[in-house]
Nucleic acid binder design. Structure first.
Lengths: 247, 247
DNA sequence: TATTTCATGGTTGTCTCCAATATATTCTGA
DNA sequence: TCAGAATATATTGGAGACAACCATGAAATA
């Protein structure tokens, strides 16, 4: 009865399946290190094996699942090391986006960002975490758009996807929120001053700080293993009584 | 029944098929904008549709082919804009690899790089383009390894894959070769001095210069369309709306 | 000439086989 | 009792047939 999200887009099925699985992984419905068996997913999503397998291949090349030889797929483990390393790469991408945006954005675009920034400041002062988070995402995404480099955008999006999981589990502290807001003030100022080099450094530092805070939050919440050790046992195979399998 | 490449690796077939197609795209056997029909490829590679389709999905998410709605796959066009944008991203990744390697590589590794560098210098003085190219690749790859960030390495490799095509078609000028060698001298010096910031800047500049020379070579050889214009049979499909936020 | 209709080839999705492999279970011998 | 071998079972990998759908271009019509 559960069609794949009831989305009769003209997009192909394997694409929609990949989308659904991406979300399930991001929001923890498919937990890290969980084994994905084709038959179960097929029944759950109500699709046949072919598009499902194609979707899994896509997700594998995106780094969201790992393909095991003759053992199917497993949701990629979210290790501390991996998170930190992804942030490390992300920081230079973010820096580049700032520098390029500085050089390429027109005045109207900068003014638009200022507006978003002010709105975000209002959320901050009102203690509206939800709204702040949303606008924060929008601002960073807008910078990547203004950078005018689709390759940069795509690269960032793909890496960011893997961090969405971590960000979803992490709840940043109040003190980090304070300093993040302050950093955004400086970021806006650098952009308006068209100081590309400075904006780049600010953004890199901003992401590094965000990395630290996310990792701290993950560690304290216990949502992540401190070290990427694979001491995690695979989920015990659920006892399945094959009804009436005559032989 | 002949296997595709008589390579009975323990890797799955879709993986090997993706590898083969990657190479064919890199070396122009499958030209940019060429339509890929499943039936033809199946016969050519002597595989069935299942692994082929899975491989195509993988290549699509790597940006080497584009999937068209109900019209199969097409080798991604190699436009000037795309090449320049990819180099733009690559330069900051390369810079990051240098900075990290500076901080994390031990003395033995640096000495090893010095050896490679000297060997490359010998090739340069001997006019051995082939050997130079090979060692140059090795040195840059080694830097990424020493950076100790697998995410960075994977991201770089994926982007670099798309440029291998351009590099293959481009033949750099002698003057560019001269300055590239000089830049490598500085790069080695900065690494040995453990000057991470400087190494980062040098590498970024190095890649920017390489970009300019590759593009110049491509333009003069006529192997690439000057502008990403689609005077080609198919309509340009990738156009992201600027302001509209959704997703 | 412009528009509509229609035939065709290719892709997409589903299904059914079968082989190869990994995992679980039972059996055997010390 | 327990380790290791042998067997059984489940799952993935791959091949191929089939139907449905879509894009495209040619033919027919106004």
């Amino acid at each position: 009865m559960t069609k794949p999200e009831e989305a009769p887009d003209n997009t192909s099925l394997h694409f929609r399946v990949a989308d659904i699985l991406r979300d399930k992984i991001t929001y923890g419905e498919l937990a890290p290190r969980m084994r994905l068996t084709e038959r179960v997913l097929c029944e759950e999503l109500n699709v046949s094996r072919t598009p499902l397998r194609e979707a899994l291949k896509t997700l594998a090349s995106e780094g969201l699942v790992e393909l095991l030889q003759n053992r199917g797929a497993m949701v990629t483990a979210m290790t501390l090391a991996d998170t930190a390393q992804t942030f490390e790469v992300l920081s230079v991408l973010e820096g580049l986006s700032g520098e390029l945006a500085c050089a390429r954005a027109d005045e109207a675009a900068v003014a638009g960002l200022r507006q978003l920034h002010e709105a975000m400041g209002a959320c901050y002062r009102a203690g509206d975490r939800e709204g702040y988070f949303e606008l924060n995402q929008t601002i960073h995404a807008r910078l990547f758009l203004l950078a005018g480099n689709p390759v940069l955008l795509a690269t960032h999006d793909k890496l960011n996807l893997r961090l969405r999981r971590a960000r979803y589990f992490a709840n940043v502290s109040q003190s980090r929120w304070d300093s993040a807001m302050a950093e955004h003030e400086q970021i806006m100022a650098a952009l308006e001053a068209r100081n590309g080099k400075r904006l780049r450094l600010l953004l890199e530092e901003h992401i590094r700080n965000k990395c630290d805070s996310v990792i701290a939050a993950l560690l304290s919440s216990g949502a992540i293993r401190a070290i990427g050790s694979s001491a995690a046992p695979l989920p015990a195979p659920k006892r399945r009584e094959a009804a009436g399998r005559s032989r």
